[in-house]
Amino acid sequence: MSPSLSSAVCAWLLVLLCAVSGAYCLRQVPRAGGGAAGEAVMGFGMALMAVPLWGAGGWQAPALGVVFCGAALHAVWLLRGGAHHAHHLVGSLTMVYMSLMAASGHGHGAGLPLLTGLLLLYYAGYVVLGGARLVTAGGSAAPPPQAGPGRRGGSGELTRACRLAMGIGMLAMLLTM
């Protein structure tokens, strides 16, 4: 497989992963509320940012930058409820940063090396910690919730898996900068 073909395949797999995560989170909005809506916006936005057909200088990156600025403002608003929403703020600001780099027309190696490095460390830690939590949650002694009409067993693990998938996607997008 040629390098350009394998790169395109990886990009489309990232698009699919982020879109499926966003769709799952969107489906959770009636039960989980605003947090799931924010995750859905992040998943769909990441999917759009990962589409390999968009070139630099188009309207897509600035438009997504505006969407993620709005998501960052929403995350700041959510911080009133507790510091556990800080990850949404970091994610939104990371997407704004990547949108700015895409809009500027810079290719690989774009961005501020120190900021990109710090974000890589943050998301690498998030992925490792999230994976460890997912593994330990799957092996816990607590019985899964009863499945019945309108209820699904193990939805907490699936939500954590979606967040982990989006963290991996963010890490992958940062690595391509």
Rank of each mutant, 00 (worst) to 15 (best):
V9D: 04
L89K: 10
M170A: 13
L78G: 01
G138M: 02
A11P: 06
A71T: 05
V90K: 00
L129N: 00
L5M: 08
A23N: 04
M49G: 14
Q28W: 00
L121D: 00
F68C: 07
C25M: 10
P143T: 03
G138N: 01
L48Q: 00
Q28G: 00
G148Q: 10
T94M: 12
R31H: 14
W59T: 14
V41C: 05
Y126P: 08
G105Y: 14
R31A: 06
G156S: 10
G154P: 06
A142N: 03
C18W: 00
G131E: 09
H88P: 06
A36G: 11
H74G: 11
H85W: 11
F44E: 13
Y122H: 15
G55E: 15
R27D: 04
P3L: 00
A172V: 03
A37I: 08
T94Y: 10
L14S: 06
S2R: 12
P149H: 04
V20E: 00
T94F: 09
L73N: 00
A72R: 04
L171C: 02
G58H: 13
R160A: 15
L120Y: 07
R160N: 13
L53K: 02
A110M: 11
A137I: 05
W77H: 09
G81L: 03
G34S: 14
G131I: 08
C162H: 09
L93Y: 08
L5P: 05
S140D: 06
V96G: 13
V51Q: 13
Y97A: 12
A161E: 08
A63L: 15
G22V: 01
M177K: 14
G109V: 05
M177R: 14
A142C: 02
W54S: 01
G167V: 11
L120G: 08
A71V: 10
S6H: 10
Q28M: 01
M173G: 01
A137T: 05
A86F: 13
T136H: 10
L17E: 08
G70C: 15
P144M: 10
L158E: 08
G153F: 01
L89A: 03
P145G: 09
M49S: 14
R152C: 00
H84M: 10
A132E: 05
G55W: 10
R31F: 13
P149M: 05
M173C: 04
H84P: 07
A19I: 00
